[in-house]
Design a binder for these strands. Structure first.
Length: 817
RNA sequence: GCCGCGAUGGCGGAAUUGGUAGACGCGCAGGACUUAAAAUCCUGUUCCUUCGGGAGUGUGGGUUCGAUUCCCACUCGCGGCACCA
C-alpha cells in the first residue's frame, strides 16, 4: 500500500463527521472531562503553524481520554471581535462582519483539515448577536453587582487621526498609523472593579495546577505590598498629606515629601504656594507627556518645590519641604510619598539634584548567618571590612541602603531591628497598616465599532441606566461610518439613536462605546457547555455537568490579561451564587512559539512563513500533527525544520510497510514498554518522547516482523497522534468499528521487566566495563563478576579497594586508592 | 533595574528520586540496489588521540564514591514588569 494521505484523510474526516464521533454527550453517565484550547482570533492571514501545536496536544489528550472511558467536551470557536477587522473596513470599505465571517470560514476549513476531534455542534462566535447578547448580560450582571462603573480616565489619543488608540496601536509613544506623538486625553470610560478581587485572585492561585512562572506573573501583576498609611500635617493648613509606605521604619529619615502633579491637594494649596506660576507650568508640562515619557527610567528626575508649604514629619516634628514631581504616580497609593533619600534610590537621586538633606537611619547588619537566615535575606557582604566600608559610605550620605538593618538617628528606636521598627514607629505616629495593590480596575470601554455594544442607556439628563434584559441583544448597528472622527463610530448611526428613543422616549440615547474584546473571551468557556441556550448564558445543569475546565492549553501571551479576567468573571459569578466553583481552569499548560527555519519569528515581511495548508497538502495532516508534537517539549520555543518533518513522514511510511504476521509474539516486552511509555507520556503531555518510543517499536517491528495482535495494540496507542492513518490501517485489519471506539490497551507489569540487564562497572566513578547479568542480581554476585572482569582487573591491580557502591539494576562503583 | 525561564553533538532534542550523557529524529559519510539518479535498505557518526586512553552538558568554584541533575559566583539568550514608594 502506498501512502495516499490526501485520500485517507479526506475519507476519514467525512466518516467521523457522519458518525458524530466526537460529540460531547450531555446525558452520558460517564465521567466528564473538559479539554479546552484558547480560541483563535480569525485573522486575515489564516491559520499559523503555531495554532496546530496546542490544538494537536489537546486533541491527542481528548482522544486518549475518550478511549479511557471519559465523556469529553472538546470544543472550538472564534474570538471574532477586534480591531484588525475594523482597520480593514476603514481601508477597504468591507464591513467587519463580512471579512470576519470570511476569515472564520477559512479558519474552520483549515482546522478541520487537521483531523481534530472537536464537537463542532458547540462552535461559538463572539461577534454573533446570540453570543454577544450574553456578553452584554455579563456587563449588566457586573453593573448590578456594583462591579461596573464609569469615570473619567486617560486614553491614548492621536491628534492627527482624531481617534482614540488602543494600547497596541501605540508604538514607542507614537501612533501606529501616522507616526504622530500620542497624547493622553481625559474621557469618560467604563471600568470593571477587578481590584475588589485582588486578594481572591491571589489566593486562588494556590489551588490550581498552572505553570509556576504564570502564577508568578499574575502575582506580580496584582502586586500586593504590605505597608503603612501615615498622615503628615501641613503647617498652618487644615488638610493633611496621607502617604503609603512599605518602610515606616525609615520615617525619621523622611526629609521631604512629594505629591504627584495631579494630586488634588495641589489646587487646594494654591493660596499658600508662593511660586504658583512655576508650579502650574510644571503641571501643564506633565499633562503633555505620555505615560511612556513619564516613566522613562533613564530621564533625570524633575520637580518643583511648593514654596510656602511645609509639612511636619510626625516622628520628630521637623518641618520638611513639599514638592511636586512626576516620578510620583497619582494612580498608586495615595499619590503622595514621604521621601527618604538615604534609603530609596529614587528619592536619593531627587535629593542629590535638589540638594536636600539626606539622613541615614538604618545601618546594614553585620555579616552574620543568624541574621541573614532570620530575615531570609542575602547579605551582599563577605567580610567585616566590606561592611564597615559600606556602612561608612551610607552614613556619609554617599550611598543608598535599601536593605534591612539596625536603626540609628531615630531617637528611642535607635538600635532596634528594622522589621520590628516598622510596627513600633507606625504605632507611635498613629499610622495604619495597609495593603496596597498594583492591580488597577479594568478599563473595558472602547471607542470602536467592531465590538459588543455596552448595554447602557442615558436619560435626557445624561444619567446612565442599564438596558433591560428583554431588549438584549442590543445589536450593533450597520449604518455607521467607520472613519475615526474623535468619538465611537456608533455615534454616526441614525438607527441606533432612533431605537433608543423608540424604546425609552425622547432624548434618551445609548452608550456609543463598545466593549474590550477581552470581555467576550472572559466567559466563552461557559458558553460551550450550553451554546444554544436562549434563556441563560448557560443552563445550571449544563454548567454543573461540564465546568470547570479540566485542561486549558494556549500561548503564554495570555498569562496575565485573559486568564486574570476569566478568573475574575468566574469569581464574580461564584460570589453571586450562580456557580459553585470559583476557578475556571483547573490545569493550564502553555505551548511554546514555533519560529521560522531561520530562528526568527515567522512574518510576512521576512517571507519565512510556513503555511499549514501547504504542509497538509504535501505531507498530510498526520505528518504535520506528528511533527509538531515531535519537535520538542510542548512549552518550548522551537524552530521549524522542513527537513525534520520529512523524518516523521518516513516514520508513517515505515508503519504502512510493516510485515504483519499471524504468529504469536515471542516476547511482547517491547510492546508493553511502549504502551507504558506512551500512556505515561500522554498523561504528562510529553508527546515528543511518546513518539520516539513508538519509533523504537516500529524500528524493531521492521526488523523482526510484528504479530497482528501486537500491531493492533500499537495502532490503538498510535491513533491519537495520527488519527487518519491509524484508522485506515485499523480498517485494513478487517475491523468494522472506528479505532477511537476501542479501549486503551493495558500493559503487563511482568512483561516490562527485562530478564537481562546491562550492568555498568565503574572504577572511581568512571565507566570501565559493563556486563550482561540477570536482573535483581545480588550485590555480592555482581561484585564478584565485576572484579573478575579483565578490563576491571587492569584498573584494580595493585590498588587498595576502599569501598564498593552498589546500585540495584544499574551499576557498581569500585572505589580504589 | 527587578522578576521568571533557559544554555547538552553539525541541527531539533533524550536522560525516573544524583547512577552507563547524547535515546529518537534530521543532517552528514560509506556501502547495497540501479545503466544512472531519486526513493529504499544496511553500517558509522560528541571531540581529541601516539588507539593505551583522555576530555566533554555556557564559564569558574564547591558538595559527593559518583553531578546535565544539588549549592555558590558569573556570562550569554529569551520572556514579563518597569519611578508601584
Amino acid at each position: 500500500m502506498n501512502y495516499d494521505h490526501k485520500k485517507i484523510e479526506k475519507k476519514w474526516q467525512k466518516i467521523w463527521e457522519d458518525q458524530d464521533l466526537y460529540k460531547a454527550d450531555d446525558n452520558s453517565k460517564k465521567k466528564k472531562k473538559y479539554i479546552l484550547d484558547m480560541f483563535p482570533y480569525p485573522s486575515g492571514a489564516g491559520l499559523h503553524v503555531g495554532h496546530p501545536e496546542g490544538y494537536t496536544a489537546t486533541d491527542i489528550y481528548s482522544r486518549y481520554l475518550r478511549m479511557n472511558g471519559f465523556n469529553v467536551l472538546h470544543p472550538m470557536g472564534w474570538d471574532a471581535f477586534g480591531l484588525p477587522a475594523e482597520n480593514y473596513a476603514i481601508k477597504s470599505g468591507v464591513h467587519p462582519a463580512e471579512s470576519t465571517n470570511k476569515n472564520i470560514n477559512t479558519f474552520r476549513r483549515q482546522i478541520k483539515s487537521l483531523g481534530l476531534s472537536y464537537d463542532w455542534s458547540r462552535e461559538v462566535n463572539t461577534s454573533a448577536p446570540d453570543y454577544y447578547k450574553w456578553t452584554q448580560w455579563f456587563f449588566l450582571f457586573l453593573y448590578k453587582q456594583g462591579l461596573a462603573y464609569k469615570k473619567k480616565a486617560k486614553v491614548n489619543w492621536c491628534d492627527s487621526c482624531q481617534t482614540v488608540l488602543a494600547n497596541e496601536q501605540v508604538v514607542n509613544g507614537k501612533c501606529e498609523r501616522c507616526g504622530n506623538e500620542v497624547v493622553q486625553k481625559d474621557m469618560e470610560q467604563w471600568f470593571f472593579k477587578i481590584t475588589d478581587y485582588a486578594d481572591k485572585l491571589l489566593e486562588g492561585l494556590e489551588k490550581i495546577d498552572w505553570p509556576e512562572p504564570i502564577k508568578l506573573m499574575q502575582k506580580n501583576w496584582i502586586g500586593k505590598s504590605e505597608g503603612a498609611s501615615i498622615k503628615f500635617k501641613i503647617v498652618d493648613f487644615r488638610f493633611q498629606i496621607e502617604v503609603f509606605t512599605t518602610r515606616p521604619d525609615t520615617l525619621f529619615g523622611a526629609t521631604y515629601m512629594v505629591l504627584a502633579p495631579e494630586h488634588e491637594l495641589v489646587a487646594k494649596l494654591k493660596d499658600k504656594i508662593t511660586n504658583w506660576k512655576e508650579v502650574e507650568e510644571y503641571i501643564k508640562e506633565t499633562k503633555k507627556k505620555s505615560d511612556l515619557q513619564r516613566t522613562d527610567l533613564n530621564k533625570d528626575k524633575s520637580g518643583v518645590k511648593l514654596k510656602g508649604v511645609k509639612a511636619i514629619n510626625p516622628a520628630n516634628n521637623e518641618e520638611i519641604p513639599v514638592f511636586i514631581a512626576d516620578y510620583v504616580l497619582a494612580s498608586y497609593g495615595t499619590g503622595a510619598i514621604m521621601a527618604v533619600p538615604a534609603h530609596d534610590e529614587r528619592d536619593w537621586e531627587f535629593a542629590k539634584k535638589f540638594n536636600l538633606e539626606i539622613i541615614n537611619v538604618i545601618n546594614p547588619y553585620p555579616v552574620s548567618p543568624a541574621v541573614t537566615s532570620i530575615h531570609s535575606i542575602k547579605t551582599p557582604f563577605n567580610t567585616t571590612e566590606e561592611i564597615d566600608k559600606k556602612t561608612k559610605q551610607i552614613i556619609d550620605g554617599k550611598e543608598v541602603w535599601e536593605g534591612v538593618g539596625i536603626l540609628r538617628n531615630s531617637n528611642e528606636f535607635d538600635g532596634m531591628d528594622s522589621e520590628e521598627a516598622k510596627k513600633a514607629i507606625t504605632k507611635k505616629v498613629g499610622g495604619k497598616f495597609k495593603m496596597q495593590y498594583k492591580l488597577r480596575d479594568w478599563l473595558v470601554s472602547r471607542q470602536r465599532y467592531w465590538g459588543a455594544p455596552i448595554p447602557i442607556v442615558y436619560d435626557p439628563d445624561g444619567n446612565p441606566h442599564p438596558v433591560e434584559e428583554k431588549h438584549l441583544p442590543l445589536e450593533l448597528p450597520t449604518d455607521v461610518d467607520y472613519q475615526p472622527r474623535g468619538t465611537s463610530p456608533l455615534d454616526s448611526s441614525k438607527k441606533y439613536k432612533t431605537l433608543a428613543e423608540k424604546l425609552y422616549g425622547k432624548g434618551w440615547y445609548f452608550e456609543i462605546d463598545t466593549m474590550d474584546t477581552f470581555v467576550c473571551s472572559s466567559w466563552y468557556y461557559f458558553r460551550y457547555s450550553d451554546p444554544k441556550n436562549e434563556k441563560e448564558f448557560a443552563g445550571k445543569k449544563q454548567l454543573k455537568k461540564w465546568m470547570p475546565v479540566d485542561l486549558y492549553v494556549g500561548g503564554a501571551e495570555h498569562a496575565v490579561l485573559h486568564l486574570m479576567y476569566a478568573r475574575f468573571f468566574t469569581k464574580a459569578l461564584h460570589d453571586a451564587g450562580l456557580i459553585d466553583f470559583d476557578e475556571p481552569f483547573l490545569k493550564l499548560r502553555n505551548q511554546g512559539m514555533i519560529l521560522a527555519e531561520d530562528g526568527r519569528k515567522m512574518s510576512k515581511s521576512l517571507g519565512n512563513v510556513i503555511n499549514p495548508d501547504d504542509v497538509v497538502e504535501n505531507l498530510g495532516a498526520d505528518s504535520l500533527r506528528l511533527y509538531e508534537m515531535f519537535m520538542g517539549p510542548l512549552e518550548d520555543t522551537k524552530p521549524w525544520s522542513t527537513q525534520g518533518i520529512v523524518g516523521v513522514r518516513r516514520f508513517l511510511e515505515k508503519i504502512i510497510k510493516l510485515q504483519v504476521t499471524n504468529n504469536k509474539p515471542k516476547d511482547s516486552s517491547l510492546l508493553n514498554k511502549t504502551i507504558k511509555k506512551v500512556t505515561d507520556d500522554i498523561e504528562n503531555m510529553k508527546f515528543n518522547t511518546a513518539i520516539s518510543a513508538m519509533m523504537i517499536f516500529v524500528n524493531e517491528a521492521q526488523k523482526e516482523g510484528v504479530s497482528k495482535d501486537d500491531f493492533t495494540k500499537f495502532l490503538i496507542i498510535f491513533a491519537p497522534f495520527a488519527p487518519h492513518l491509524a484508522e485506515e490501517l485499523f480498517e485494513s485489519l478487517s475491523h468494522k468499528e472506528s479505532i477511537f471506539l476501542q479501549s486503551w490497551p493495558k500493559y503487563d507489569e511482568k512483561l516490562i521487566k527485562d530478564e537481562n540487564i546491562n550492568f555498568a562497572i565503574q572504577v572511581n566513578g568512571k565507566l570501565r566495563d559493563s556486563i550482561e547479568v540477570l536482573s535483581d542480581i545480588s550485590e555480592d554476585e555482581t561484585k564478584e563478576k565485576a572484579l573478575a572482569s579483565d578490563k576491571i582487573k587492569k584498573w584494580t591491580e595493585g590498588k587498595e579497594i576502599i569501598k564498593v557502591i552498589f546500585v540495584k539494576n544499574k551499576l557498581i562503583n569500585i572505589v580504589i586508592k
